[in-house]
């Protein structure tokens, strides 16, 4: 981003497009000069003639490229999906705050993800795996609609090898599925944690965050301020100008997208943050 010109995108050539699950693909972009991001931040991805969309970065800060996992849901994202390798994609950012990382060194980490919500968590998960010795247990609870909708299945083995305890669940199983069936909160009963030294990172659809956070606090006994979630809003500008992403007085693009549970609870009085 040039000094002061906050709306000018930097154009990058797509290096690789990796289809993940139906309607979801990961786009690999080279890092422009001086690009440093933190886990949890997002980019405004723009395709000229179509528009801009906020996409969270799924690659860890120490990784050499930028990885963006994009689901084709709307006008712009479906156009991004029709791109070919070598086509230009504009980015602005990194924008927004980030997941607290330094603060929780030495703690046990609990990731709770739902659907495409694994993408922003992946950035933090990998960063922790690169510095595995700094953290205690790492548990990943992940749920999707069907077994075919589980994101990054090819990475699970690698995660386990590096000492991540993975529990998967689906809403509707198929004949091959042997694992858990039910929403992601049903997995909470299957794990034993030490709540006073555990931090939970939650990302997924609003309704999932809402119930997962509630159960984490009420059933698992994790302190509310150690429950951290990223919220999703339609950020048009990403720099706190357009007003589309406001939840009560918080601008998700500047004050967020990462919030702690007490903050979200406070917003619930005035607005619907989920």
């Amino acid at each position: 981003m040039k000094q002061g010109l906050i709306f000018l995108p930097t154009l990058l050539k797509v290096k690789e497009i990796k289809p993940e699950i139906p309607a979801v693909a990961t786009f690999r972009l080279p890092k422009p000069d001086g690009f440093i991001h933190k886990a949890g931040q997002f980019l405004e991805v723009s395709l000229f003639g179509k528009g801009e969309v906020p996409i969270s970065i799924s690659s860890p800060p120490s990784y050499e490229d930028i990885l963006l996992t994009i689901r084709s849901t709307g006008y712009v994202t479906s156009a991004i999906h029709s791109l070919k390798e070598g086509d230009a994609l504009g980015i602005r950012g990194p924008l927004g705050n980030s997941f607290p990382y330094e603060e929780y060194k030495g703690w046990d980490i609990l990731f709770v993800g739902g659907g495409i919500g694994l993408a922003p968590l992946r950035s933090l998960l990998w960063e922790m795996l690169y510095h595995r010795e700094d953290f205690g247990r790492i548990i990943l609870l992940y749920g999707a609609r069907t077994p075919a909708d589980l994101l990054y299945p090819w990475q699970y083995e690698e995660y386990e090898k590096r000492g991540v305890e993975i529990l998967l669940t689906v809403d509707r199983g198929d004949e091959k599925w042997r694992g858990n069936v039910g929403v992601v909160t049903t997995l909470f009963e299957k794990i034993k944690i030490e709540p006073e030294r555990t931090v939970a990172y939650v990302c997924g659809p609003g309704i999932m965050i809402r119930f997962a956070m509630r159960d984490l606090v009420e059933k698992m006994g994790i302190a509310p301020s150690n429950c951290i979630a990223t919220l999703e809003r339609h950020m048009k500008c990403g720099v706190g100008k357009c007003g589309h992403c406001v939840i009560a007085e918080k601008y998700v693009c500047i004050d967020g997208p990462v919030f702690r549970y007490p903050e979200i609870k406070m917003l619930e009085r005035y607005d619907d943050p989920w």
Binding site: S46, L47, F48, G49, K50, G51, E52, G243, H244
Partner: peptide
């Protein structure tokens, strides 16, 4: 009041990006 929305006018090759007032 100062909210706006962003629209792209033009095709993939040439055009401009504009902002238009919006209402909550």
């Amino acid at each position: 009041c100062f909210c706006y929305t962003v629209v792209d006018i033009g095709n993939e090759e040439e055009g401009y990006r504009a902002r238009v007032w919006d209402s909550c």
